[in-house]
């Protein structure tokens, strides 16, 4: 695998933020979800983990989040002394508290850290505005559409100003129109706030549209197959979605993904 180089003019590609070194995970039932994964996430990256189901993308994300401990290997966070390795997590489902209002849901992470409602209010309101949910502060989740719930979920993940935003196929359950809209809004947010994103998806199109780097993974055992640089400038908008360049990049990523899927049967990686 060729180490990726910094592409000039790109939003991401800063200093290394987190390195996974020879990370593996074997569950108690003997299934090896991940084997010997090396990966470096750089500051400002929008990194997608792309692969077929069962390739350990979600497990890798959970290990980065600290929700699962790796069986082998290490995670190296580069951080200033005293700094927390804070992460924001967006699940496949919106995963909101159904009894709490939109405001209270976004406030939750701060609330758990002891921030009072009034102290949290400016940050919560500002984020709700950023995800286009101003005016819905008092609505409860069941009064919102699927896309709006996901926006609340994203706002909640960002409210603590995490260094890395981890997203586990967040838009997989949404219809295409809503997904495109959320893709655009997420990119806009990312460019303005300059946080780092690790985005798990099984959609080639989504990964190419969003990210500057795609890590293609293969299954059985879950491993890194190849890294693909998405050599296209930001901001990316609807015009990019229909451009020949986008189509070519999708084709390139798709070819890698197909080889990754075939490698599982052929055993050659």
């Amino acid at each position: 695998m060729v180490p990726s180089t910094t592409v000039p003019g790109m939003e991401g590609s800063g200093k290394p933020l987190l390195s996974l070194r020879a990370v593996g995970k074997t569950f108690s039932n003997g299934v090896t979800a991940l084997s010997n994964v090396d990966m470096t996430i750089r500051e400002g990256d929008f990194l997608s983990l792309l692969g077929p189901s069962g390739c350990g993308k979600s497990t890798a994300l959970r290990i980065i989040a600290g929700l699962t401990a790796p069986t082998t290997g290490t995670l190296d966070w580069s951080r200033k002394p005293g700094e927390e390795s804070s992460v924001g997590f967006v699940f496949q489902e919106p995963t909101l508290l159904p009894w709490a209002s939109v405001f209270d849901n976004v406030w939750l992470p701060l609330r758990l850290k002891g921030v009072s409602r009034s102290d949290a209010a400016p940050a919560v309101s500002q984020l709700l505005e950023r995800v286009h949910l101003s005016g819905f502060e008092n609505a409860v989740p069941r009064e919102l559409s699927g896309g709006m719930k996901m926006r609340v979920s994203i706002a909640r993940a960002l409210v603590t100003k995490p260094r890395v935003l981890l997203m586990d196929e967040p838009f997989a359950a949404l219809d295409e129109i809503t997904r495109f809209k959320l893709n655009n809004d997420l990119l806009e947010l990312w460019q303005d706030e300059r946080f780092t994103v690790v985005f798990v998806t099984h959609s080639v199109f989504e990964s190419v549209f969003l990210s500057n780097r795609i890590v293609v993974m293969a299954a059985r055992p879950g491993r890194v197959f190849q890294e693909v640089e998405v050599d296209a400038p930001y901001p990316r908008d609807e015009a990019f979605r229909t451009s020949p360049a986008y189509a070519a990049l999708c084709r390139q990523a798709s070819d890698v993904l197909v080889s990754a899927i075939n490698s599982t049967h052929g055993a050659a990686a």
Binding site: L67, L108, L112
Partner: peptide
């Protein structure tokens, strides 16, 4: 309780 919600609480050090 939803497993993901419990994970969310863990992530936020509840």
């Amino acid at each position: 309780v939803d497993r993901n919600l419990r994970d969310l609480f863990r992530l936020n050090g509840a």
